[in-house]
Structures are given as C-alpha cells and as structure tokens.
C-alpha cells in the first residue's frame, strides 16, 4: 500500500522543500520506504536540502522521457537506508512533465514497494503544482502565519478539492493537513503574527504541526542536512511530532509559547 503525499502551499518561500525533506526523513527513520520527488522543474532545490546535489546524474524528466530507468535516477540517501530522492531537472521547464509521465513513474515506484511518495510541489498554481497534487492521497499544506500565505493556502485547498484525480473521479477526498512554519510565539503575543487558532479558523482545517521560527533551518539547508536530523533543535522535535501525527499518533502541540527565560538570562538580558 503506497500513499502519495503532496507538500504544497501556493505561496513560495514558506518551507515546502524543508518540510518535504524533513517529513521524508522522519518517515524513513521509522523504517518506511520513502521516495521524495522534486516537482519544481527548472528550480531544482530539494537535492540541495537533502545534500545530494553532487550525486544527481539523471532526473525526474529523464525518467519521464525514457532517457534512463527509474532505478538509475533514484538517489539513495547516505544517512537513511530506505530513503530515495528523485531530483528535478534544472535545465528544463515545467512543460517537460506530463500527466501520463508522472503516473508512469508513480506506478513504477508503487511496484518497487515504496510506502510513501512525497511530492515537493513548486510554488504557484500552474502546471507543476497541479501535477504534484493530481495523484495525491494526502496533502500537507504549508502555511506561514501571515495573511497572504493563508490566502494562497485557501486557494490551494480549493484546487485540492476540485482539481485532483480523487476529486475528478468522485472518490474519497484528498486528506488535507495544515502545517504552520516560521511560527514565532513572541510575535504572536505582540499581535504581529497570526496565531495557530486564527489560521485554523480561517482555513477550517486541523493542524498537523507547528514549526517554530529558528535559525537552525537556514543552517540545515546550507549544510545539506534535513533539519529534522538536527536533534538539538526545537524544529527537529516539531517535525518529528508532525510525522507522528501524520501516522495517526496523538501528540500535544509544542512550541506555541515563548520559552521562559532563566533567571540569569533575565538578569543579563540574554
């Protein structure tokens, strides 16, 4: 049984690729066979975040066009046994993807026994984003706690309920999850940022995770290590929780409050 999960948002720069990488790692760390695919043709990023950019020989478009086999294009992760990356093509544009081509790759991955296919969607609502979500069973909608991101996510949720295979075939609808990223409890408290409750209420969806704003994300990206693997970080724990919830575990939301400063830190303005 293979589950296809799209990580999408509409808006760019909210953390789709970071989330795709961390969720894929989180699932693989639990022994699941996971393939994570970069749908952002022409703006290849996932391989950088995953730290395998120098090992990309063949990409997603090559597989679709029959230049190579899927096996040749899948890049095996060096840290996790059961994790594979399918990179996007940097030299092509999104028109190189086709519905049948994507289906063919998915069918092959399913035949290979992958349990999860994570689709890292490009920003926007154009063809690339449409193809990334079309075959999805579930969707993780990544949203920043600010109005434009929330608006774009609402738009994406509309497309998920009308422009996916499940919607067109009248099957059970795509399961939608909300993931808040770059959440800063301090700025929520001062009213500069929307709260989890606000976002939840506007979008009418349950929250699968709240990822705190942290410099750890940037340093993880720069070093090519998905942030979930940085055990020291709150971000890692928050993603780990989200993966747990994705698998049906019940976990309390964390990192919604500003960490209390210790006595010394308060004294010396730390």
């Amino acid at each position: 049984m293979t589950e296809i999960i799209v990580v999408t948002s509409g808006k760019g720069g909210v953390g789709k690729t970071t989330t795709s990488a961390s969720v894929a790692c989180g699932l693989a760390r639990r022994g699941k066979r996971v393939a994570v695919i970069d749908f952002d043709i022409g703006l290849r990023n996932l391989d950088l975040i995953m730290g395998c950019e120098r090992r990309v020989v063949y990409d997603f478009v090559n597989v679709i066009q029959g230049d190579c086999t899927l096996k040749q294009a899948l890049i095996k992760d060096k840290r996790l046994e059961t994790l594979f990356v399918l990179a996007a093509s940097q030299t092509r544009d999104k028109d190189a993807l086709s519905m049948e081509g994507v289906r063919k790759v998915f069918d092959e991955l399913i035949a290979e026994g992958f349990e999860y296919i994570i689709c890292d969607s490009p920003a926007g609502i154009e063809k690339g984003a449409h193809l990334a979500m079309y075959y999805a069973d579930r969707a993780i909608v990544v949203v920043n706690p600010e109005v434009s991101s929330v608006r774009d996510s609402d738009r994406i949720l509309g497309l998920l309920s009308s422009k996916t295979r499940r919607a067109e075939k009248g099957e059970e609808k795509v399961k939608e999850h909300l993931l808040l990223t770059r959440y800063s409890p301090r700025r929520v408290a001062t009213g500069e940022m929307m709260s989890v409750t606000d976002v939840k209420e506007i979008l009418g969806l349950d929250v699968i995770g709240v990822i705190p704003e942290s410099p750890d994300v940037l340093s993880a990206s720069n070093s090519g290590t998905p942030v979930i693997l940085n055990e020291q970080s709150d971000v890692s724990r928050a993603y780990e929780d989200a993966v747990g919830r994705l698998l049906g575990e019940t976990r309390q939301l964390r990192f919604l409050e500003e960490p209390k400063k210790g006595f010394l830190a308060r004294m010396f303005g730390g």
Partner: peptide, 8 residues
C-alpha cells in the same frame, strides 16, 4: 457543504 475556498 464544503468550504468555498479562495478563487472558487
């Protein structure tokens, strides 16, 4: 009965 989303 479903939410009417932005753009719909």
């Amino acid at each position: 009965h479903q939410p009417v989303r932005s753009g719909q």
